[in-house]
Design a protein around this nucleic acid. Structure first.
Lengths: 217, 217
DNA sequence: CGCGTCATTGATGTGCATCAAGTGGTGTGG
DNA sequence: CCACACCACTTGATGCACATCAATGACGCG
């Protein structure tokens, strides 16, 4: 957690963490209906969140990586409303919510930090609504890749190369399209010399062109 | 604000409100890029929030009514990222964010309440992602109407009749479709005896059938 | 190695966008 | 007070982007 805290405060933030939890690839961290007690900060690994309705519909709502926080959906009704699955072996910090609230009453900067995390999630979802509501398939794929590589770059990874931890199906659900269409969008971008794709290995050859794809011409 | 507070605490919550603000129909409460200082609780009236990109794309991200809170998007970067427009003459309570944080350090139940408001917004947006990503046009319209009438009913209005404060265009943007398609969905539901529609006046004849439309058959 | 999962590719169908014209209600000014 | 313009909405005709269906290919892993 990157904060503006002094030494003493950092120690106290450690109090937030009840324990660490390992989640193996494919395992569920929590699911819809589970009682909400804690938020989870990802130490390592990669997750997807998705919601499912009684009638069998599924929608992937996001992909989360190290440093991001999961579980915010559970606060409102003290019960989770989405499912979280590890897409690779992962480790999370369990932060009991009572403790978060207690400590953020004492440490102003922590309080502010936590509020920003929630707000960031709201803004992120606004962005998802934007592409789901008003972009064609190729634009969606471009937005998706750019966002992913940007976040990975912030974590010290390459800004032009990435390994997709999720399946085409997960991507397509997140982007509101069919997996075949995701594949064909890739194909088109490859033909245009924008990408190289090998299974889940993606290399961005021309980031500018990719960015241009997200823009209305 | 419906809280679990004692008398004394309720008085202190009044401290949250700096002032009231009237917003005339068509006016903008705040827009993307504006400095964030405060949240706004709607006392009366009806708003839409939307985001716009540099390239001219627009997406309506929500409709808000009395008792709901606007401005949560601004917390993360101390700057708003969406636009809020009154769809009818409205009045809001301006709650400086500093004061919210300060007071929620002192009043536990207020703190919890505020966190729930943010979490509720996250869950709401998850629901929007669901229908944007995985429902056809008729299902979207059905979800939209049911949600709207339910919220109005909670506020003492009819559970079967409503006046749409927003245009077909606003609806269509929110639902990720074209205004013509919204109209045609209405038409179909009218033909099936589910709705009566007269301009912006909508009467739900058969709520069960409308609900069924939102379900995968 | 062999099976199952995941991805690619092609052929066909369709839901919704797009384009275009028409309707009705409302406000304005001559 | 009517004529006109304007706006929000409706209705119809057409086309296309993407879904759907189906078959094959390529891993990755047990």
């Amino acid at each position: 957690m990157p904060l503006g805290l002094n030494e003493n405060e950092i120690e106290r933030v450690d109090e937030l963490v009840d324990k660490r939890l390992k989640v193996a690839r494919g395992e569920t961290l929590f699911q819809s209906g589970d009682k909400f007690n804690a938020l989870f900060a990802i130490r390592t690994g990669f997750f997807k969140t998705h919601i499912s309705t009684e009638d069998g519909r599924e929608q992937v709502t996001g992909f989360q990586m190290a440093g991001e926080v999961i579980g915010l959906d559970g606060i409102v009704s003290e019960q989770h409303t989405c499912n979280v699955v590890a897409l690779e072996d992962a480790e999370v910090c369990v932060m009991p919510f009572d403790r978060i609230e207690e400590l953020s009453r004492k440490i102003t900067s922590l309080q502010r930090h936590f509020h920003k995390i929630m707000s960031r999630e709201i803004v992120r979802e606004n962005g998802v609504m934007l592409f789901l509501g008003s972009m064609n398939s190729e634009e969606r794929v471009a937005v998706f890749l750019i966002n992913l590589v940007k976040r990975l770059h912030l974590r010290g990874f390459s800004s032009s190369e990435l390994i997709l931890k999720m399946s085409r199906e997960d991507i397509s659900s997140y982007l509101g399209m069919r997996l075949e269409t995701v594949g064909r969008s890739f194909k088109k971008m490859i033909a245009e010399g924008i990408l190289e794709v090998n299974g889940r290995h993606v290399r961005i050859i021309n980031l500018n062109a990719l960015t241009d794809l997200t823009l209305l011409k």
